[in-house]
Design a protein around this nucleic acid. Sequence first.
DNA 1: TTCGTTCTTCGTCGAATGACGAAATACTGG
DNA 2: CCAGTATTTCGTCATTCGACGAAGAACGAA
Lengths: 117, 117
Amino acid sequence: MVTVEMLAPDESRVAVQEQIARLAKALGHPARLQIVETLRRRRTCIGCDIVEEIGLAASTTSEHLRILKAAGIITGEIERPRVCYSLNPDALAPLKALIDVISTADPGPAATGRKQG
Amino acid sequence: MVTVEMLAPDESRVAVQEQIARLAKALGHPARLQIVETLRRRRTCIGCDIVEEIGLAASTTSEHLRILKAAGIITGEIERPRVCYSLNPDALAPLKALIDVISTADPGPAATGRKQG
DNA sequence: TTCGTTCTTCGTCGAATGACGAAATACTGG
DNA sequence: CCAGTATTTCGTCATTCGACGAAGAACGAA
């Protein structure tokens, strides 16, 4: 299992952090989470159905899709005149790794060992 | 195992999504990830050391800490004149649940089944 | 070619974010 | 009381975000 810091000398750790930040930021909006959820439920590719599903203007939805695509979280396959969107679960690996590390809260040579009541 | 949608009739799913969005948004900034990383490494409570660590102005750092605290990701215990910050791993559970569900990408009666090469 | 469908890009707007320094707050120590 | 330390709050500023409608682009159908 690869964690966040065992593959980073010093500079690339920053790069990894920035990548994780991009992923988290992309997920940090209800409309985009709704898109992700929709794509998860209906694994099938979807076009303008997403627009109806989330109830925002087409242009706004397109922007959210662009952000998710830029983060690598979804892929958009062109099928003129439609675009077929799918989830790309692998993209979330770095974020997942971070959260796993935090959640397991690997206790090691602790200093003050307390985390919360 | 509890997933995101099996505990949500319809409205509370929105609430859960908003909560997840808050968490993701809070993590969606390199400086805040650096704070989280720092708190993970040095499990010990930290005060102004964080300011030095991330290299931003004290007021800016305080703001980032406030955001993380508001999201519940960290806790700040007052120890005048210092504040002792700690990670609160449990807070990330909803976000972790979502990412787990996506990552496992539970294949079922798929429609177009493809995700990527 | 012209029309209809689907999506993206552009321009605009108000609101939120992220950064800073200065000042306020709240103790500890002289 | 006065100075020092650690932190937050405030005011400011530039930038980004998120929303929209209008216009543009790309293809299939007639």
